[in-house]
Design a protein around this nucleic acid. Sequence first.
DNA 1: CATATTAATCGTAAAATTACGATTAATATG
DNA 2: CATATTAATCGTAATTTTACGATTAATATG
Lengths: 110, 110
Amino acid sequence: MGTTKTKDYSVQELSIAKYAKALSHPARVAILNVLLKRQSCICGAIVDELPLSQSTVSQHLKELKAAGLIKGDIDGVSVCYCIDEKEWTKAKNQLGLLLDKLMSPASKCC
Amino acid sequence: MGTTKTKDYSVQELSIAKYAKALSHPARVAILNVLLKRQSCICGAIVDELPLSQSTVSQHLKELKAAGLIKGDIDGVSVCYCIDEKEWTKAKNQLGLLLDKLMSPASKCC
DNA sequence: CATATTAATCGTAAAATTACGATTAATATG
DNA sequence: CATATTAATCGTAATTTTACGATTAATATG
């Protein structure tokens, strides 16, 4: 089947899964690294830095955009991509909250 | 094709993608929530808390184990799962490092 | 206006993911 | 020892992901 029923999970679970999914491919992490490093973020420049075709990079950009982590501004014939700070912060908080939820010393079992 | 060449990406990119992938399905986030909340973590109890079949949950557990985030101890006929603190900390640091890499004020473009 | 450039989208193929029921292996329990 | 319980694995199907080349739409440039 391969389908997942959205309503079976909590908002937190769905939200975290959404952000994690955006980060679940090295190419997308690489794209984000480029955007975090540079101020210039023209799509073509990103394509040049990745070992992937233009169309594939475009697809990855689309997914990052769908997750809200980046946004793109059309500038003439090019598109300037950059981190969406607001959503980025949300992702950081959501993922951080989960990852921090380890009450360290007493790991009774195992 | 659908293949991804591992050597085209940095260790950091591959590592983050690995952890993010583990968290990229709400069922797996839900499993981790169970393990973070409870001390008892018998596989059957996890299955009872999820809207999925035993075999599907077993597959998700396998993936979390493959990412190193959890480990399972066989106890007679049951298996006790729990967070692997060491790898969990690594995941937290890796993901945290990326998410924190936003030098906030000067987002020149877009 | 013809041509180049840029990036999205389309069509397609291969692979991976997700899910389930059935089976299996291992340990308990009567 | 026969039977029950637990959880992994197998087989399978639907769906999604990943990737590419080709095409398209939009803007720029000669």
